[in-house]
Structures are given as C-alpha cells and as structure tokens.
Design a protein around this nucleic acid. Structure first.
Length: 311
DNA sequence: AAGACGAAAGTGGTTGA
DNA sequence: TCAACAACTTTCGTCTT
C-alpha cells in the first residue's frame, strides 16, 4: 500500500538535500546513512530520466517516449536499401546518390546511438548502485568517467553492463580510499563477484589506472562509524596499526581482518566493550580471523588488554 | 546464556612446474 | 593444466564471565 510521505518529519533524521529518490525502486533514501526513508511511493515523475545536460536536451518531450528496447530508440526512419520509391519505381540517378548519402548517415548515427544507449543504461545502473551503497556523488562521477572511457575505447564490448559498472564503481571507491569490498558491491548486483573482479582487472590494465594499494588503515573510519565508536578509539586503532605494520606481521594478511583486530584492541583499551562478532561483521571477516590477528598483534606488541579501564 | 578461545577440516584463489 | 600452498572460513568443543 502507499503511505504518505512525511518528508518534513524525516528531515529531522536526515538533513534536507541528503534525501535521494530512487524511482526504480520507489524509495526515498538518505545518501548519508543509506537508510530507506519511505518506500512504495507512487512515481510522479516522467517515465525516463536525464542525467547529463546533453541527455536533458535530447530527452525533452517531443514524439513518443524513447524506448530502451528499440535499437534506435524508436526515433529513426529506416531507409530502404532498394533504390526504389514508395510505389516501387526505380529512382533517378541523383535520387539514388542521395539515398546512398542518407544510408551512410544513418549507419553513423546508429553507431553513435549504440554508445549513447549503452552509457544511458549504465548511468541508470550506476545511479542505483551508488544509492544503495550510500556512495557520494564524487565517486559516482568518477565511476561514470571511467565507464565512458572504457566504452569509448571499446574495452568492454560483449561484457555485461552491470558487471562493468560495478567494476567502475569499485575502482572509484579504491581511488577515493573509501573501501567497499567486492562483496559489498556484488551484493546489490546480479552478476557474480568473480565476474566483477575480472572486469576490474581488465579495466585497470586497459585504461592504465593505478590503484593505490588499500591498506588496513583505510578500513578503520568506516568500521568506527559503523560501530558507533568515537575518534579516540579511531586514533588508538591507527596507532596500533602503525606499530603492527612496522613489525611486519600484517604482511599478506587480509587488511580488513587486521583493521578489525586493531579496532577491537583499541576499543578495549579505551574501556569500550565490543564483541568480536560485531566487529567481525562490519569488517566482513569471521570472528576467528579477528581472533587470530588479535592474538598476533597483542603478542608481537606485548600489549596487555585490561578488562576494564577508563582514564 | 553469551562471549572468548583455539583446534581441525574445508574452501577458493594464487603460484610455479 | 595440475598440485602445492597460504590465508581465510566453517564448525565445534571447552572455558570464562
């Protein structure tokens, strides 16, 4: 059933301007928390969307709505390949030449259309993913730029748009040091993690993108906020992490697990109790891994973790 | 009852012949 | 292409709070 949207009330929870409407799913979503504020809303907008100024230009209302299912969006008039007019008579020579020019032109626009169509479709998918993952505009734009480049270079021909978009988004996240794991992204995608990973490698190679190696420290801010911990714990965790890194015991280990252990230790040193389970969950690893890192780090650094302590 | 701990076996991905 | 390998996961029993 359809509920009334009380946006004013919702603005207390989510500041205005942070609320995005996802018309594919019919939900109002907060871009900060990713929280769904209102769902099953009746779509009152136009039946298509425009993402860029060019698209807005192109999609102004005239004629029937553009269709994504028709290869030419349903707007092209096909030019017959036979040199005959509507009544079937042969054409004069100059008319013949004109028809040839028109055919050539039509083929060109068709190719142009295919790139546009692809990008339009991708933009939609990208928008959806970004909202669901609660990612900021900047990252979305970065991903869109990468995608456009990939399509223009013909790198991704024959690959599922969804997978490529996901890979682009993943790259953008890495570039912006906002770690979202492949699992996080794959969760909102029909394609498998494996396929996204393959696209990721392909794009990195073909477009010469240099991906900064994501260190464990990149995971900390996200985990801290997800667990509702303060800056004190965050600082402590980073400190522990630095020390652990200098001993070399973190080499080759899953950075998420290392970060999780650092946060766990830091929280306890600050007298805050968080279960291994909670931390493991936000880090996307198991308790066992958290434990293993925890044990290694505390042993190596000779850390004593008190049961209760407050300064 | 819930959390912490660790052993043992299983899993998917990488590496090197 | 295959087997070895390291890291991580799953599962489970035991101990502690």
């Amino acid at each position: 059933m359809v509920r009334t949207v009380d946006l004013e009330k919702q603005e207390e929870k989510c500041p205005p301007g942070k609320v995005i409407y996802d018309e594919v799913r019919g939900e109002y979503i907060c871009t900060e928390s990713g929280e769904v504020i209102e769902e099953r809303v009746v779509d009152q907008g136009p039946e298509w969307r425009a993402f860029t100024p060019e698209e807005k230009e192109k999609r102004s209302r005239s004629g029937s709505p553009l269709s994504q299912t028709l290869h030419d969006s349903g707007i092209a008039t096909m030019i017959d390949w036979r040199d005959r007019d509507a009544s079937g008579k042969k054409l004069e020579l100059e008319r013949k030449l004109e028809a040839m020019r028109m055919r050539k032109w039509q083929i060109r626009t068709r190719i142009q259309n295919s790139i546009d169509r692809n990008i339009t479709q991708a933009a939609e998918e990208l928008d959806r993913l970004a909202v669901e993952l609660g990612l900021p505009e900047a990252i979305k734009d970065e991903a869109a730029t990468i995608y456009r480049k990939a399509v223009e270079r013909g790198v991704v021909r024959g690959r599922a748009v969804e997978a490529v978009v996901a890979a682009c988004l993943y790259i953008a996240c890495r570039l912006y040091k906002l770690p979202r794991s492949l699992d996080d992204i794959a969760e909102y995608t029909k394609t498998q993690k494996k396929e996204i990973a393959r696209c990721f490698r392909l794009l990195v190679r073909e477009l010469n993108i240099k991906i900064p190696v994501s260190g464990a420290s990149d995971y900390i801010p996200q985990m801290i906020s997800a667990l509702g911990l303060g800056g004190r714990v965050e600082a402590k965790a980073k400190e522990i992490l630095e020390q652990a890194k200098s001993t070399g015991i973190t080499a080759g280990k899953d950075p998420a697990g290392v970060a999780a252990a650092a946060v766990y230790i830091a929280a306890r040193l600050c007298g805050i109790k968080k279960t291994q389970k909670d931390i493991a969950q936000v880090a996307g690893v198991t308790e066992v891994t958290v434990r293993n890192r925890y044990r290694e780090i505390t042993q190596q650094l000779n850390l004593k973790v008190p049961e209760d302590e407050e300064e």
